[in-house]
Each structure stands twice: as C-alpha cells, then as structure tokens.
Design a protein around this nucleic acid. Structure first.
Lengths: 132, 132
DNA sequence: CCTTGATCCTCTAGTCGCTAGAGGATGTAG
DNA sequence: CTACATCCTCTAGCGACTAGAGGATCAAGG
C-alpha cells in the first residue's frame, strides 16, 4: 500500500494527474487512511501503468475508459478494443501524412530565407501567399 | 468592404474564430457600421489569410503574432522569422519521429489481435505491460 | 408598413488533459 | 516541539477555439 507520492513515482504519473484520473472515473476511489490520505494497492498501480501506456500511445481518455472496461470484463469480446486501436492507428497515419507535408513545405520555406530585412524575407512572403 | 460572414467565407476562417483573433490582438479592431457590425477591407482579409496559412503550418498564435509583427515592420531584420520557423521545424521533426514510433508499435499491437475474448486480447495485454 | 429569415452583436461557458496555486491539515525526524 | 515534507480540497488557468443564450439589425417579399 503506497501513498499517492510513492504511486506517482512508481508510475511516472504526477500526483494531480492521478487525482484527476480518479475524478474522471478512470481510477476507482482508493482506500483512505484515517486522516483521509489516499493509499493505493498494487492493482491500482497496474491500472495507472495501463493508463500511462495508453496515453503514451496517444489514446484519448474516453478510449482508455473503454479499454479499461474491457480489461475489467475479460469475458467480453475483444472487438471493441480492436476497433478503438484501429481507429486510432488510422488517425495517427493521417496525422503522420499531414505532418510530413508540413515538414516539407516548412523546410522549403526556411531554406529559402537568405537573411536580410523582413521586406524581402521569403518566410514572411510565403506565409502571406493566400494559397495554402 | 465585407461583413464578417463574407470575410469568413473568403478566408475559410469561421466567424467566432475571426472575433477571437481580434480579441487576441492578431487582427486590429476593424471599422464598424453605424449599427456596430464589423466590416473588413482587403488588407484585413490578407492578414487573415496570413494567419490561416501559418496556422495550417502548425504555428502557435504567439509565434504568429511575432511573424505578423515582422510583416508589419518590413525594415526589421528577418532573423526572428527565421528563428521561429526553424524552431517550429525542429518541433515538427521531433513529433514526426515520435509519431512514427507510435505508429509502429500500435500497428504491431493491432496486428496481433486475433479476435476472441478480452481475456486473451493482445491489445489489452500489450497495454497492461508496464514497459512503455 | 410588416413580417420573415438571415446575419450580426456581446457574453458566458464548455472542450481536453492536465497544471498551478491557495490555504490548510497531517506525518515524520531530530 | 519545531521543522519540513507530504497530503488534502477547491478554484482557476492553459491553447485555440466552439457552442449557445438572448437580443439587435438587415434585406427582401407581400
């Protein structure tokens, strides 16, 4: 049984964030000491690790809620988890494609800057062009 | 001289967003009709196009403020624009690298899901593993 | 002139996932 | 018994919008 600070260190999730996850219903309200301090068992630490891993992968909290729900009910079909993960993968791929385009354009713009006054600056000029 | 709705259509920026940009000082307060409605001249439309282009490239509003400032003062040195754009490019490259990693891991996870119950689901399992 | 429907106004509050701070209680070590 | 760390709750802030309430104004048709 660990106090919140210990739990934060073990999971790499900050104290206010842990309380926030509790408030958002991702983490069940933990036991408290007589004075009202939260104490966490191993199961909660595991749950936080799950959340952290999913967050690192960029899942939103609503998706994580569903994934935790599945994890809590192992007899349910895995289809929902698959759907969520695939949807997320598609989003990541879209973002990747867009970022690659941005990078190319921005790199081109930056390269064209030869210093000097803003009046002749290709960066400013490129941004001013209405074509996106 | 265009009313705000026309301006929104011409720039592809929504009406509330235009008002928001004005509030944030990116766009100078425009002239008003006697009844208090905003009317925009070509210069403002240009400025909004500039903002939109920069936003599309992922620049933050604070950076855009600086870039607009340079654009307003063509005699100033272009170095700041260059610095902002380079910094942003570096950030984009970092995000790209991270997203590529995520995509790889997520694709691996998704691929390993063979359907069935959540108990045996590789997606859930992968998320539960504490190693990130 | 009157009505209808579109457009506009201001103001407030909500989104997401935290993060920061106030103001106070409790725990632990010397 | 005094420090200092840790914890508590509550509220507000971030960025970049977005949504909605409640009301004023405009243009066109009858």
């Amino acid at each position: 049984m660990y106090p919140i600070g210990e739990t934060a260190k073990r999971t790499g999730i900050k104290i206010p964030t842990i309380r926030y996850y509790e408030q958002e219903g991702l983490l069940p309200p933990p036991r408290r000491t007589q004075s009202g301090r939260r104490v966490y068992a191993e199961a909660e630490v595991q749950r936080l690790a799950f959340i952290r891993h999913a967050r690192t992968l960029g899942f939103e909290l609503t998706d994580i809620r569903s994934l935790l729900d599945l994890s809590d009910n192992p007899d349910r079909s895995c289809g929902e988890a698959d759907r969520i993960a695939r949807k997320h993968l598609t989003e990541i791929e879209a973002r990747l494609a867009q970022l690659r385009l941005l990078k190319t354009e921005l790199a081109r713009i930056v390269k064209s800057c030869a210093g000097g006054k803003a009046a002749e600056c290709r960066i400013i000029e490129a941004l001013a062009e209405s074509a996106g």
